[in-house]
């Protein structure tokens, strides 16, 4: 592929890109067929979703499916993220052999401008999720991005965050999700069955808590390892190794 390998070597390696190309074309053709093929008769589950939308507590179909009808899937997604963080924290700790203590004027002032804006956008997406595009995962991703920016600049804001709070926040999403599901059972419904007036409140609470927890999980994944016990703040340990990544 690069042109400076020997001819025999290149001929042997040529099969793999060819196989990739064939697979790509096949996948592309399958996708195009799936998109262009006429759908006959059935309109899927859309009418059933619409019919139950009044009871679901939200006006957005996507949010209704994610946090009400199929809340089980979202619960498991939260657990996947949580397990991801646990796995990353259990790996052998690793330290960079070099890091810049100062992130630079441009990056740090940009982060100072951007982070409040990102928190605002995350909050808006969370709120917008009830009747249009948006929701907990999108808001959580924006908050996680803000966390990554703070990690890059080793912001003093991070060292103000107690270490226990980070662990609690990461656990809180899945645990709160389960508690809400169990609370529905206590009230005489099925597991995670939310209906009517209470559903709106339950879904807003679920969205806020899961968004915060997802944001913390994503930032912790980027941070790479668990902050040390000896440090007084969560941010003290993490950016000391990640601080050099900003260019």
């Amino acid at each position: 592929m690069t042109g400076n390998e020997s001819t025999g070597h290149r001929r042997g390696m040529g099969l793999v890109p060819l196989f990739n190309l064939v697979m790509l074309v096949a996948l592309f053709a399958a996708l195009a067929w799936g998109y262009l093929a006429p759908v006959s008769g059935s309109s899927g589950l859309a009418h059933r979703v619409d019919a139950a939308l009044v009871e679901s507590g939200v006006e957005s179909r996507v949010t209704a499916v994610l946090l009400n009808y199929r809340a089980y899937d979202t619960l498991l997604e939260c657990f996947v993220l949580f397990l991801g963080v646990v796995a990353v924290w259990s790996l052998r700790p690793f330290r960079y052999d070099r890091h810049d203590p100062s992130p630079g004027l441009i990056l740090s002032s940009l982060v100072r401008l951007l982070v409040p804006l990102m928190v605002l956008v995350g909050g808006y997406l969370l709120w917008a999720g009830s009747n249009q595009a948006g929701g907990a995962f999108q808001a959580g991703a924006i908050l996680g991005g803000a966390g990554v920016l703070l990690l890059l600049t080793s912001s003093p804001l991070l060292s103000a965050l107690p270490r226990g709070l980070l662990s609690c926040g990461i656990c809180l999403g899945p645990v709160f999700f389960l508690m809400m599901g169990l609370a529905a059972m206590v009230l005489g419904r099925d597991f995670m069955e939310y209906r009517g007036e209470a559903a709106a409140l339950a879904i807003v609470a679920l969205e806020v808590v899961t968004a915060l927890s997802i944001g913390l999980c994503l930032a912790a994944l980027f941070g790479g390892r668990r902050p040390e016990a000896g440090q007084e703040g969560a941010g003290k340990a993490v950016p000391s190794q990640d601080g050099g990544e900003g260019r």
Binding site: A133, F137, Q138, A141, G145, L218
Partner: peptide, 13 residues
């Protein structure tokens, strides 16, 4: 919705 998640998680993070 998928576009927002793709841009934020799939691409950014």
């Amino acid at each position: 919705d998928v576009a927002l998640a793709e841009a934020a998680i799939g691409s950014g993070l």
